[in-house]
Design a protein around this nucleic acid. Sequence first.
DNA 1: AATGAATGAGGGTTCATTCAT
DNA 2: AATGAATGAACCCTCATTCAT
Lengths: 217, 217, 217, 217
Amino acid sequence: MPKSTFLNLRPEKREAFITAALYEFATNNFQNASITNMVKVLGIAKGSVYQYFEHKKDLYEYLIELATSEKLRYTKKVIKKAGEGDFVKWLKKMMFQSLLFELENPRYGCLLNNVSQERHSIELGNLAQRNRLETQKFFTQILQLHQKNGSLAKSIDVDNRAMILTHIMFGFTEGFYAMNDVDILMHASENTAISGMEDVAKKFAKAQSEVISPMFQ
Amino acid sequence: MPKSTFLNLRPEKREAFITAALYEFATNNFQNASITNMVKVLGIAKGSVYQYFEHKKDLYEYLIELATSEKLRYTKKVIKKAGEGDFVKWLKKMMFQSLLFELENPRYGCLLNNVSQERHSIELGNLAQRNRLETQKFFTQILQLHQKNGSLAKSIDVDNRAMILTHIMFGFTEGFYAMNDVDILMHASENTAISGMEDVAKKFAKAQSEVISPMFQ
Amino acid sequence: MPKSTFLNLRPEKREAFITAALYEFATNNFQNASITNMVKVLGIAKGSVYQYFEHKKDLYEYLIELATSEKLRYTKKVIKKAGEGDFVKWLKKMMFQSLLFELENPRYGCLLNNVSQERHSIELGNLAQRNRLETQKFFTQILQLHQKNGSLAKSIDVDNRAMILTHIMFGFTEGFYAMNDVDILMHASENTAISGMEDVAKKFAKAQSEVISPMFQ
Amino acid sequence: MPKSTFLNLRPEKREAFITAALYEFATNNFQNASITNMVKVLGIAKGSVYQYFEHKKDLYEYLIELATSEKLRYTKKVIKKAGEGDFVKWLKKMMFQSLLFELENPRYGCLLNNVSQERHSIELGNLAQRNRLETQKFFTQILQLHQKNGSLAKSIDVDNRAMILTHIMFGFTEGFYAMNDVDILMHASENTAISGMEDVAKKFAKAQSEVISPMFQ
DNA sequence: AATGAATGAGGGTTCATTCAT
DNA sequence: AATGAATGAACCCTCATTCAT
């Protein structure tokens, strides 16, 4: 929900703004993210932020939306194939693609990770919960699809598996960001980041896969 | 590292202080936890806090220590039995006991959960990372013990399993707090809390168990 | 090192600010000068100060610079004549001009006097020492000039005389401010101040001169 | 004006208290001297200070009195000889003895130096002024004595000379403390301090003497 | 559309002083 | 006589937000 002023901005300006905002909200949770600091980095007037967005929360929500849709776009190809063939095979592809997304878009990834850790507050409500429920619902639908197609045993408790999947995926993601230097991840140019983090990522992907596969046999 | 002032406090007062402090640091991360708010709730003077502790970080570290040692005390019986019999059986007991701890001591549990999510900062360093590494090391040692005793296949990569275990356990814990209303958990008297959350807890325990068991066969 | 914010201020506002800040830092040493009190007097918000300056020390340093350059401007004419004619004659002129500066700009004068009395601290370092060393160096250079020009006996120990001059001049200045009511000095309009303090000043100038003259014969 | 409780204290305790108090008020001006810090160093209860003294100012005044009387005791021999023989000779002795006092009792010396720099305040009034006036009066009396005895020219303006003497002596003292590390001075054992500072002191004494002698010929 | 000065509530922290024990 | 917990006002500093230009 940016104001029209933001949408009418020269693309370069808009993108510079987004990049800086993402960085600020990716390296800090909502409360600690500082508009003051962000505009200092950007070199624009503080007032401009309030020409573009109603308030801090408004900006935050916009960034979340952006990150979410970007992630969706990135994983679309895999999502489309849901229901075809073996579920575990699909899941592995999905997990791999997600990890690639984190590596290539650390700002988006880190922001979304922050969202999933946001404490309940008057201002944001239970954002983390809503975030997790969406993911859970997504997995539930995929699982149901696979059950319909016969590629997943009907005996499996879909809701239960979706919940577990959700917690594990968020758990690994959070672990990934906790164990690695977020700043290095984000400042690296895309290619450097990938090559530098490749091993770590592979280890994580393999681990996740090992854990999750047995759940569906 | 509380000052002697704090240790000499009348037990009721000290406990009231701890309760309120725990609540503040359990519902907020370090930066957002507010001494001002805490003393308002407690009905004491702001200066008193600084009679008890050197500074905010000092108080935080004390609460972490308290929570950690309380958790250790709570799980001691199970930890002592490490190495005896089947590892998975032991792990299930451990996980169940941990969950019980979270339910009976939601303030401690929630605080420790916050610790594991703390962003890297100049003031706290990489607290979350240190926290996770400790847990990982703990699991590594237990796994090695079981390998020595022959109750765990020598072929299993202990370091890898310890890492996975860590991420999953933190993941489930975080999920648990994200999905439930922390405020209700913490304000409930112990018994109410348990009965109210029993089903949720059982579901979590079972889920965790299902995921983890296959990793060691 | 004020921020651009301060420099862009409406001149009246900026001057009102400087006047009030000078008063606060002239009547109190660095530690005791209170931003809180200053803004109360000025009738502006506390936050504004931090729009203008990075922090208290930043403001202090700006005021020192201001006072120093103002004093330099005031005594420039005399300084330029250094080396011409008799040194003692020049020194008398210099002392008289300095005194006039103190009388016409009691806020600047008093601030600089405070600087020369600042205790060594982590925050400011040894400001007083640095301040005195500068003055001493200044006198050394002038004395060397006069020795080159032949208007001062080569036998005179320049470093020693410069040190003595420095201590005496600071001593008289400090004595002047200790013996007179600084508040009256500072609140008086310029002309009133001069006429009111004229006799005192003359007495001081004569005394200083009497002391110093014999040192160079 | 200590309370009777202080006077009834075991001598060792009283002396330890005085030593610590002196240190605190010698290294800080009145406002910045911290009772809190002092008792921490001493290892006594904060409340004790208020058993001994009415309030901070009360303690400060006691220390000033102590330092003053100690200095008097130290210079008594010289003072007694006032009026005998040449004034300048006497003054040199006096100045030398004063310097010795500063070196052997840096805490007292530094405290008195602080007193002479204290800003006018509601709490302390114009302490520095009173302090200087006393010294000035002292010199006036001595000078008058010498005029009576014929060892000083009747033509000399006694009040003027006393004033000048005062400013110069305070000036050199302040300069001495500004240019040297007060903490080193005070922590050194007496003998070390003297030997370490001997050269500096001699330089100062000679300088002072050179300046002042011509004033009385 | 862009600016950036102004605000004021809130943050953590220090400290002299009081008073019940 | 000694303690030390309690107080609360004061300190410097930060920040999202507003608004006149």
